[in-house]
């Protein structure tokens, strides 16, 4: 397909590392691709509030309660920044929300796994936020300006989230035998789903090649996954915990860890809706939205009355 003149100019700009801004010309597919990715990212933050919110009322100390609440609050803030970024591409917040609530838009499958013990708060921070950071650090340099800029702040907050998760794991893995078992159990359950967060292998990733050309993505799924594994294995050693992968082994030649095989059937199944908490997560968001309808209507009605009074 021959490129239009506009498209050639656009690609030149991307190649020259100049940011694309909302009013710039962009290919329709670039816009579509970005809306899909940014809204998925935003939905992940919002749905991601639920598995951790599950432990706010049961956090084992006032300090832990404070940190966890602040963390979940940060996620709501991230959701807001991302929805605002998506709005610059011409989609409204109501439409974004509808897409989430009707299941039309996806969010990260990791949040369809249950948080069943306190150690899951450690594992989610350490592994899930750790994996998310890898992606988000890359996105600080993404080609679309309104997506790249909030990522800088989000990354700072995420790195605090990861540290607090690791710190929970550290206390548990050096605590009583029961606490240590709790930490190991959480690692066993969260390890593979965390690796799945990077998405399908490059060969099977439908949007990857185009996204790389447009510099929306700058590193491949497999590259990021490998960096994450190399880093995390060492952290697990410090904790004295076993990564649940018998094939995991340092490779002198490649200077990376070799590791086992992801259960891709599980991955695609959870995406399709067949994960342990898909239904619960969506139902919780639908319920919050439905229960809140009269609140939002009241705020609108009141604002309308105020505006009328002011005009009179």
């Amino acid at each position: 397909m021959a490129e239009s003149k506009e498209e050639a100019l656009f690609q030149e700009k991307v190649d020259a590392e100049q940011k694309i801004e909302p009013k710039d010309w962009m290919p329709a597919d670039y816009r579509k691709n970005l809306i899909r990715q940014i809204s998925q990212h935003g939905h992940s933050e919002i749905v991601g509030m639920l598995p951790e919110g599950n432990w706010i009322t049961r956090a084992p100390s006032l300090r832990r309660k404070t940190v966890l609440l602040a963390k979940v609050q940060d996620e709501a803030g991230h959701g807001l920044y991302l929805y605002s970024a998506a709005e610059t591409l011409g989609i409204g917040r109501d439409e974004l929300n509808d897409q989430l609530l009707t299941g039309k838009a996806k969010y990260s499958s990791i949040f369809n796994y249950p948080t069943i013990t306190w150690a899951d708060m450690g594992a989610v921070g350490w592994l899930v936020d750790g994996a998310a950071i890898m992606n988000q650090v890359m996105l600080c340099r993404t080609s679309y300006g309104p997506y790249a800029r909030p990522m800088v702040r989000i990354c700072k907050e995420e790195s605090f989230h990861q540290r607090q998760g690791y710190e929970i794991m550290n206390v548990l893995s050096h605590g009583s035998p029961e606490q240590k078992a709790m930490a190991q159990d959480a690692l066993d359950r969260w390890w593979w789903p965390s690796l799945m967060m990077f998405g399908p292998s490059d060969a099977d990733s439908p949007h990857s090649a185009q996204s790389m050309k447009w510099k929306i993505k700058r590193q491949s799924n497999d590259e990021l996954r490998q960096i994450f594994i190399d880093r995390t294995v060492q952290q697990a050693e410090v904790l004295g915990l076993q990564i649940p992968d018998p094939e995991l082994k340092w490779n002198e030649e490649t200077q990376h860890y070799d590791w086992g095989t992801i259960n891709w059937d599980e991955f695609f199944n959870v995406i399709k809706g067949n994960g342990p908490c898909n239904k619960e997560r969506l139902t919780a968001r639908q319920k919050a939205h439905a229960d809140g309808a009269w609140v939002r209507e009241a705020a609108l009605a009141y604002a309308g009355k105020k505006a009328k009074k002011k005009a009179a």
Binding site: I46, M49, L50, G53, I56, T57, L62, R63, K65, T66, L69, A70, V72, Q73, A76, G77, G79, L80, Y83, A284, K287, A288, D291, G292, A293, V295, R296
Partner: peptide, 29 residues
């Protein structure tokens, strides 16, 4: 108030109520 976190009528209220809950728990400490 922290029970609202993730379940509020709009995102801005999730954030506001979490803020207030954080203040209150800080005072309690």
């Amino acid at each position: 108030l922290s029970e609202w976190c993730g379940h509020g009528p709009q995102l801005e209220e999730d954030i506001a109520q979490a803020n207030i809950a954080l203040d209150l728990i800080g005072q309690a400490r």
